[in-house]
Amino acid sequence: MKKNYVNLILVSVFACCQLSSAQNKYEREFRIRKSQFPSTAHDVINNNIVGAKHLRFYQENDNNKVGFTAKFKKDKLWYSIDFNNEGTLEKIDILINSTDIPNETYSNIEQYLNTIFSNYRIIKLKQQYYSNNDTLEKTFKKAFQNLILSSNIYEIVIAGKKERGYLDYEIQFDSDGNFNNIRTALPSNYDHVLY
C-alpha cells in the first residue's frame, strides 16, 4: 500500500515537471545559405539596406514556428532583421549597451531584475523596432537612425539566478522600462565545437 502511494507521488511529480517545462518556448538558430533564405525577405534586404557588412542568414526554429533572420553590421552597429516563414518583416533588432538606454528606463529595468533574481549577468541588450502599422521604409528609417521612441521594446538576455542555479532568460521591457514578457531561453548552441 505504501509503495502505491510512493509511486503515485512520483508519477504526479513527473507529470507536473513535464507540464511546467512545456510552458517554455525554446528557440534554436542555425546558419543557412543565401539560397535557402526566402526570396521575398531577400528582396526586402536588397531594397532597403545599403552598405551592410558581414551579412549572414539564419533559420530560427521554436516550438510553434519557423522564422528567418539576417544579421549584419552597418555604421558600427550590429543589426538583425527577423522575418516570418513567408518572408514578411516582423522586427529589426539593434545590439546596444546599457548606456544607450535612457537613465530612467534603465533604472526601472534594473529594479525589476533585482527583485526577481538574487544574482544576474547581462549577456545581451537589444533595442527592437516592430513593423506594426508602419511601411517597410518607415521601419527601416527608424531603426537605422536608432531613434528612441515610445514604441521601442528592449530585450535583455541574462543569466539569472533564482532559487536553484542559473538559467538563461529573455526579458522584454517597454520604452519606460516596464516589464512585458519573460521566457526561459536555451543556452547558446555549441554544435560547431569539436571535442
Rank of each mutant, 00 (worst) to 15 (best):
Y129V: 03
D93M: 01
S80Y: 02
E170L: 11
L125I: 08
N63F: 12
Y166F: 15
T105P: 00
Q23D: 09
L194Y: 11
S12W: 02
T135R: 03
D176K: 14
K162A: 13
S39W: 10
K141Q: 14
N47T: 06
Y195V: 02
T184C: 04
N178G: 03
D62K: 00
L55C: 01
A22D: 07
V66Y: 07
I81Y: 02
S35N: 11
E163V: 12
A143V: 00
I116D: 13
K161I: 06
N7I: 15
F140M: 07
E104P: 00
L186W: 03
T184D: 01
N119L: 04
S151F: 06
Y130A: 12
F30A: 06
L89R: 04
K91W: 01
K76A: 11
N97Q: 07
P38L: 01
F57E: 02
G165S: 08
L10R: 02
I182C: 01
C16A: 15
Q172R: 07
K142Q: 13
N85K: 14
E170N: 12
H192R: 11
V50Y: 05
S188F: 08
V11P: 00
N108L: 11
L194W: 04
K161W: 06
E104H: 08
P187K: 15
L147P: 00
I122D: 03
I182G: 00
D62T: 04
Q36Y: 04
K138M: 10
P187S: 13
S21R: 05
N189G: 05
M1L: 06
N152F: 06
S188M: 09
S12G: 01
K162M: 15
N85R: 14
L77V: 12
E155R: 06
D93I: 00
G87A: 02
F72W: 09
N178R: 14
Y120H: 12
L55G: 01
Y154W: 07
I116C: 03
L95V: 12
D176L: 10
S151H: 11
G165V: 09
D174M: 09
H192N: 13
N114S: 10
D75E: 14
L186Q: 11
R121C: 08
T88D: 15
L149D: 09
E170K: 12
S150R: 10
A159Q: 15
D174W: 03
Q23H: 04
L147T: 08
I158H: 08
N180K: 15
N61P: 00
K124N: 09
S39N: 06
S21D: 06
K3V: 07
S131K: 11
S39F: 11
L19K: 05
S98Y: 04
V11L: 15
I116G: 02
H192P: 00
D82N: 13
I92K: 03
K73Q: 08
I109G: 05
L136M: 07
K25T: 11
K76Y: 08
T115S: 15
N24Q: 14
A70Q: 04
G160M: 11
Q127D: 04
I153S: 03
C16F: 15
T135Y: 05
V193K: 09
I45Q: 04
I92N: 04
N108C: 08
S35E: 14
P38G: 03
L113P: 00
Y130H: 12
S12D: 02
L89S: 02
K2D: 09
C16L: 15
V66R: 14
S118G: 14
V13K: 00
S21K: 04
T99H: 06
K91R: 04
Y5D: 08
S151D: 13
R183D: 11
A143Q: 10
